[in-house]
Design a protein around this nucleic acid. Structure first.
Lengths: 225, 225
DNA sequence: CAGGAAAACTGTACAGTGTAAAGTACCGGC
DNA sequence: GCCGGTACTTTACACTGTACAGTTTTCCTG
């Protein structure tokens, strides 16, 4: 009975940078895309809100940590193999991570400083390309193009107003009917004859675009200065 | 002196959907990327905050309006001409609009319902492709790929931690030196021998990637079911 | 072991956010 | 002239990030 100073006062040793980030990621995932408030996050950690500020300069620093955590989950390409296969694997893994953590994409466009896992990821991608015949400039082009495509595709995918391909019809049908009437015939045609067809899944578009890009990169690989 | 009930009480006829949206866009642009709060916006319009809710169901509806406004500024492709040139023009215009309104990209990934200008834009793009030999499925592939690339590229462009290409060195140099030391040689190499070279401008990458995509689309145009 | 500084967490407080609810002035139409 | 809807104001509430000032606990030094 010497050192038991009641429950509330002491929660020493609970927090740590990584634990906070992991919990914040979990809560954001659960809530379907909203980063938790400092108070909610602190509550889950069994601590007062202000305790977080001992481990992060401000909330932005926490968000940086969350983004870096997402990058840490992406499979790194290796240098020794067929670069197209490696890039496809990396792209698939990156897309999965961004879809699994749908709040991440929104955070990225305001984040300037990259974390360690992020740098490691970029380094591995460039390293793979360089090892397989891309020039420095070529690797820069390829990296910019691939990442832009992956980010943009996931953005569009997440912006879709439905969850599973099946829910599509009920959401889109009335809108599209009006679209046709009000003078957007091409949009209506594309929806009716393509996107609303049973079996259509927007996710399939990912591979079509990706392979087109990879083929283009292969074609340019040796000609890029 | 009959009907002058002091200034404050009556501000009838000031607001309108479009005026609110235009003012919100202007304020967001001025502030460098932050959407104004309802109170700041109302103040600029000479009105109380709650007055806005007579024209918009909630703030999200206002944001929808802002996004649609951005789309209204994008040049539409025409159907009669060379589709590659039209797509290039459209892509350039879209990128300019998204860079001119850097808050827009962040809004897009949470917006489900498209506005009128947005639908018109999508319709025109698909119409141009269809008119020049793309199948319905082919137009869908092309549209998805092009838009993903444009969105993603602008996201990356806006996330860069500097404004003009000149500011790059001072920001990146110390970071990169550490990167090389801490084991990211490929990243360091790319930075040193490419991105930090005088005259390098990340914006140039836009055209390289875009042309690669357009060439790939041309190649697939007739083979896509 | 004493003590003092640093570290980890608490308490309180404040300015700012979106918006619900109710009130008030003005307008056009019977 | 009245009356209902429209356009706006007033007040209020729950919630946000975080500044500032404690209060412990831990650990290093003499």
């Amino acid at each position: 009975m010497t050192t038991e100073p009641a429950d509330p006062p002491s929660a020493r040793g609970t927090l740590s940078r990584e634990k906070v980030v992991r919990t914040a990621v979990a809560m954001a995932d659960e809530s379907g895309g909203k980063v938790p408030s400092t108070r909610k996050l602190a509550e889950r950690l069994g601590v007062q809100a202000m305790a977080l500020y001992h481990h992060f300069r401000n909330k932005d620093a926490l968000l940086d940590g969350m983004v870096d955590f997402v990058f840490s989950e992406i499979e790194l390409p290796s240098q020794g193999e067929d670069w197209k296969a490696e890039m496809r694997r990396r792209a698939a893994s990156m897309r999965e991570a961004l879809v699994r953590h749908p709040w991440a994409i929104a955070l990225m466009d305001s984040r300037a400083d990259a974390g360690l896992a992020t740098l490691r990821h970029h380094n591995a991608v460039i390293g793979c390309l360089r090892a397989q015949g891309f020039t420095v400039a070529g690797a820069a082009h390829a990296f910019s193009l691939l990442d832009a495509y992956i980010y943009g595709f996931v953005m569009q995918e997440l912006a879709l107003p439905f969850e599973s391909p099946g829910d599509l019809e009920e959401v889109a049908a009335p809108i599209l009917e009006q679209a046709a009437i009000e003078g957007f015939p091409h949009l209506a045609e594309l929806a009716m004859e393509h996107a609303l067809k049973p079996g259509y899944d927007y996710a399939d578009e990912f591979w079509i675009g990706l392979d087109l890009i990879l083929d283009g990169l292969e074609r340019h690989r040796d000609s890029w200065a």
